[in-house]
Amino acid sequence: MKVAILFLVAFISLILESTVFNEFTLLKIKPDLLLIYVSLFALQKGSKKGASFGFGIGLLEDLFMAKFIGMNALVKAIVGFGIGFLEKRIYKENFLVPIIMVMVGTIIAGFGFYILSLILGIPISINHFKVIVLPMLLYNILLTPIIKFVFFKTNIRRY
Rank of each mutant, 00 (worst) to 15 (best):
N22R: 14
L33W: 00
M71V: 15
L26N: 00
A109H: 03
A73F: 10
R89L: 14
R158S: 14
D32V: 03
L96N: 02
S52Y: 11
G58V: 07
I15M: 13
I147W: 13
P98S: 09
V150C: 07
A4N: 11
L116I: 10
P98F: 03
I108T: 09
L6A: 01
I122Q: 07
G70N: 08
R158P: 02
V3F: 13
I36D: 04
V79I: 11
I132S: 01
L134Y: 13
G50K: 01
L34P: 02
L63R: 05
L34M: 14
D62P: 01
V131L: 08
P98G: 05
D62N: 05
I108D: 05
L40A: 07
M103Y: 05
I115F: 15
I83R: 06
H128E: 00
V150R: 03
L26P: 00
Y37C: 03
I100Y: 09
S125N: 08
L14D: 03
L86M: 14
G110F: 04
L96P: 00
R89A: 10
P135G: 05
G105L: 06
L6Y: 06
N140K: 07
S117P: 04
M1I: 11
A77P: 06
I69M: 13
L35Q: 03
I147C: 07
N127R: 05
A51N: 00
I78H: 02
N127K: 06
N140Q: 11
I115S: 10
Y114P: 02
P135F: 00
P135D: 04
V97T: 13
F21W: 07
G56T: 04
L120R: 10
N94H: 10
G84H: 01
L33T: 03
I69S: 07
L74S: 11
G58R: 01
N140L: 08
F64A: 15
L14C: 04
A51I: 02
V150S: 12
F21D: 05
I5A: 12
G70L: 14
L60Y: 05
V3T: 14
L63D: 10
I119M: 10
K76Q: 12
Y139M: 06
K67H: 11
A73W: 06
L134S: 01
